[in-house]
Write a protein that binds this DNA or RNA. Structure first.
Lengths: 155, 155
DNA sequence: CCGCAGGCATTGACGTGTCAACCACACGGC
DNA sequence: GCCGTGTGGTTGACACGTCAATGCCTGCGG
């Protein structure tokens, strides 16, 4: 922190800019593609995927939040919206405190219908554009950045 | 498109997940850091930077939008908010149609004060975590993905 | 049995972003 | 001179996310 006034050099600046543009464009692109064929948003898709991956297609709220790295509040708000569209349903939690979410029929249908196209979109826009080796490098980079963020949780 | 049912393999899936997590955590981290010391949001910072980089610290709206890859509507909404906080000011455009934005004193002060810490945050959380070589690779990846997105503007 | 401590979830207010509809004005043809 | 047309900008409605405050139970100590 406070590493005095040593600015990013030109290469670093360029990479950083490119990265930022890629991140925002890519996100927007996938969001639009997902919305077009199926009417789901990316967060919708993430929630439904988490649920369908779980046994009984049902999870405790805090586990969903932990898995997606979402704040409780974000999850609650989003479940409100999804529940209003009949994609998921809140159900009382059998064991102890907390409560569960489960997918509805519509939810399962929506995510099942959307998954292949979404997967294809991820490949077309991202995975297939990058060499296997570079993709692995990117994975390592992401892990390193995440770990570094976790170490310095705040600052 | 519609590359039938060939799913991402495990490595690809892992890299994709890591990338997504990095992108969202990193964005959140930088946003918080910027907000803490200076009260600016990332979009605020982007707009102010674009303006202070310009001669006369003043630009035509559509040029700002083009430079940041923002929609006109996004820019208009954001300028409303920034103008309400006296960070920028809309001014009539001397030549022909359209209108300009310029920074206020407060705007310049805010971005000047925030820039070093933001730069340091980008280094601490990102640039310095990645080897020079990997950073260059990331830059190339980003360029490739952006170009690929530009080629298939819609789909 | 009462009370309160802490984890889990919800709520409200607000900033941010998208899409679609709209307004306004400069310009070219007639 | 007047009317399309198109570009540049705005607006409204809504989805998304954050923060801070709150509510609601469970379980434990007196």
């Amino acid at each position: 922190m406070a590493r005095s006034t040593r600015w990013l050099d030109e290469d670093q600046e360029a990479s950083w800019r490119s990265y930022r543009q890629m991140a925002s464009r890519l996100e927007a692109h996938l969001a639009r593609s997902l919305a077009r064929d199926g009417g789901l948003s990316v967060p919708d898709f993430d929630v439904l995927t988490a649920l369908t991956d779980a046994p009984e297609r049902r999870l405790c709220l805090k586990d969903v939040a932990a898995g997606l790295l979402w704040s409780p509040s974000r999850l609650s708000h989003h479940l409100d919206r999804m529940q209003a569209r009949d994609l998921v349903r809140r159900v009382p939690c059998p064991e102890g405190r907390g409560s569960d979410v489960e997918t509805t029929e519509r939810g399962v249908a929506a995510v099942t219908a959307a998954a292949p196209a979404h997967d294809a979109a991820v490949r077309d826009a991202f995975v297939d554009v990058i060499s296997r080796k570079d993709l692995a490098t990117l994975g390592r980079i992401a892990e390193a950045v995440l770990e570094n963020l976790a170490d310095a949780p705040d600052a």
